[in-house]
Simulated scan of single mutants.
Amino acid sequence: MKRGLPIVHGVHTRHEAPDRVVEDIDLEFGNGERRLFHRVRAQGAGAVAVVPMLDASTVLLVREYAAGVHRYELGLVKGRIDPGESPEQAANRELKEEAGYGARSLVRLRSLTQAPLYMSHQTHVVLARDLYPERLPGDEPEELEVVPWKLDALHELILREDFSEGRSIAALFIARDWMAHHGDRR
């Protein structure tokens, strides 16, 4: 069933913290029902999750401290897009800062949302290939461990206790399928 979008009668913006903006949206739905929805507005241009391919079958993961779960967590290179950067530029910068590699080929595969019912934040999944060693200083308090992982062992990775971040899991499945259908194209 195709529905039209609700009518927006007004938006009230409030700053809950220096980096957290909440919008209260007064909406009227097609059936006449009216509700107040709350949306956490994304700050900046979003983020990137980088899938760095060392070769056609090996992805590079990083292990870093995750304060939310108080443990070291395996995952993809990730980071914010700085003002004026494209997702591809941000992906290459983050890759150099976190994993010590740059990429000659960067392909934006798609964007992911985390909680689209109340957040506008998007993470752009970028496939990085044709890697070369290059390190830039980053903002991490310690050098991250780089862990090569075979894509054909993804079924083992997703069951590990120290690999739980949803964007990394989704991005690896997307990249694996993209590589299976387009992998030899640059």
Rank of each mutant, 00 (worst) to 15 (best):
V62R: 03
A45M: 09
M53Q: 04
E143I: 07
K78N: 14
P6A: 05
D19N: 13
V51E: 01
T13H: 11
V48I: 09
V126T: 06
S111V: 08
E134F: 03
I158K: 06
K150G: 13
D55M: 02
A17N: 01
R34F: 05
R93F: 08
E142I: 12
L74G: 09
A128T: 04
V125C: 04
R160P: 05
S57H: 14
R108C: 15
R108A: 15
R14Q: 10
E161K: 11
R160W: 01
V125H: 02
E33F: 08
R110M: 14
L106P: 00
A153Y: 06
L136H: 06
L54Y: 12
A153C: 14
E165I: 08
R80V: 12
A171L: 06
F37L: 13
Y118N: 10
G46N: 08
Y72F: 14
E142C: 08
V40P: 00
Y132K: 10
S86R: 00
G84D: 10
V146R: 00
Y65G: 06
D19Q: 11
P6N: 09
E88C: 14
Y65D: 08
F37T: 03
E97Q: 15
L5F: 06
D162E: 12
D26L: 12
G44E: 04
I25C: 14
G30T: 12
S168L: 03
A49N: 06
G138H: 00
H155C: 07
I81S: 02
P148E: 04
V21P: 00
L151N: 09
E165G: 11
D55L: 05
H70V: 08
E28D: 09
H38D: 07
V62E: 10
